[in-house]
Computed example of a mutant assay.
Amino acid sequence: MTTRNRILLALVGVVVLAATAVVYTGLVRARNRDGAAAATDDVTLTGPRFLFRSTADAERGHLATVAADDPGGARAVSNVVCNRVYAAGGTGLCLRPESGLTTYQLVVFDAALSVKQEIPLVGLPNRARVSPSGQRVDWTVFVTGDSYNGGKFSTRAGMLDTASGALEGTLEDFAVTVDGKPYQAADLNFWGITFAQDENRFFATMSTGNHRYLVEGDVSARTVRTVRDNVECPSLSPDGKRIAFKSAVDGDPAKGWRLSVLDPASGAVTPLAEERSVDDQPAWLDARTVAYGIPRDGGHSDVWAVPADGSGTPRLLIPEAESPAALEPPR
């Protein structure tokens, strides 16, 4: 299926998504009217701080930061509302509802939260990442309308070059290799991109049939190849040698997801000490620590952290928060 046809089908799917979107957007705006936190002058994408999306009632959805050495302490809250956020290299990414509409948009910020670019999104925001230098941003949305999928949600994963402002297409346009052989299928879905330091190499999840593969990609060559099965939402470590990820328990998403760390060179997998189901793309806070969101009732969530070597126990890092990112290069 061509990109043009996928986009046309996705546009049809927006009609279905609109009902969900308007409910969510209405809830966010209602909460904002009831006492959203005012913008503060000290909200910037500079460290040593953690960026996150607040889930506290008075600031629901607002982009916020907190000191890395006191993550449970006072937070700086902006007036920017997002569904997902991330930042690296002085570049911020926000997936948010469009003002007055039931659709969404991708917004790229500079370190001072000044808008650099806005792009309409077809679908419901799901994942957001920024490459280490800030040169590229990537995102995943849920869409409907793919004929093979019977009206259920599918995904689209796209990239943007922040230097040129050029869209680099979706991963569905890349040439795929499965187990060393060229592969084509109508049911290809991609999500959860994470970039290496060179900005060209990346990892992501690819699903087809009953498999959810970890794939390694090359932006310049526009290729992806499978690396390992049952790996979702990868996150490359600061040294580029390990990948934090979630995997379906016993290969069955209905049983939940377990966080682990993969050493691609040896193939060794280290289960992390977090034994609760984590349906999130983990984020590296430094070379030793992985963070992730755990939802609670009523749309609330907390960010937890756990050692990346499988030791220790999970600890509450930032209450009333999700979608975390470290705002200085992790070491």
Score class of each variant (00 low, 15 high):
Arg136Lys: 12
Arg136Ile: 12
Val137Ile: 08
Asp138Leu: 14
Asp138Tyr: 12
Asp138Ile: 00
Trp139Cys: 01
Thr140Trp: 10
Val141Phe: 08
Phe142Ile: 00
Thr144Ala: 15
Gly145Asp: 06
Gly145Pro: 07
Asn149Leu: 11
Gly150Ser: 14
Gly151Cys: 08
Lys152Ala: 12
Ala157Gly: 00
Ala157Ile: 00
Ala157Thr: 15
Ala163Cys: 00
Gly169Arg: 05
Gly169Trp: 09
Gly169Asn: 07
Thr170Cys: 01
Leu171Asn: 01
Leu171Cys: 02
Asp173Gly: 13
Phe174Ser: 02
Ala175Ser: 14
Thr177Val: 08
Asp179Gln: 12
Asp179Val: 01
Pro182Asn: 07
Tyr183Gln: 02
Gln184Arg: 13
Ala186Ser: 14
Ala186Val: 12
Asp187Pro: 03
Leu188Arg: 12
Leu188Val: 05
Leu188Thr: 08
Asn189Arg: 14
Asn189Cys: 04
Trp191Gln: 07
Gly192Pro: 03
Phe195Asp: 11
Phe195Trp: 14
Ala196Trp: 05
Gln197Cys: 00
Arg201His: 15
Arg201Ile: 01
Phe203His: 10
Thr208Pro: 00
Asn210Arg: 13
His211Leu: 08
His211Val: 02
Arg212Val: 04
Tyr213Leu: 11
Tyr213His: 14
Tyr213Met: 14
Leu214Ala: 08
Val215Ile: 12
Glu216Met: 07
Gly217His: 11
Gly217Ser: 10
Val219Gly: 00
Ser220Trp: 02
Ser220Asp: 15
Arg222Leu: 02
Arg225Asp: 05
Thr226Phe: 09
Thr226Val: 05
Thr226Cys: 02
Arg228Asn: 09
Glu232Tyr: 11
Pro234Lys: 11
Pro234Trp: 12
Ser235Leu: 04
Lys241Val: 02
Lys241Ser: 14
Arg242Trp: 06
Ile243Tyr: 06
Lys246His: 04
Val249His: 02
Asp252Trp: 06
Asp252Lys: 14
Gly256Val: 07
Gly256Ala: 03
Gly256Ile: 03
Trp257Val: 00
Trp257Tyr: 15
Arg258Asn: 13
Leu259Ser: 04
Ser260Gln: 12
Val261Ile: 10
Ala265Pro: 01
Ala265Met: 05
Ser266Arg: 06
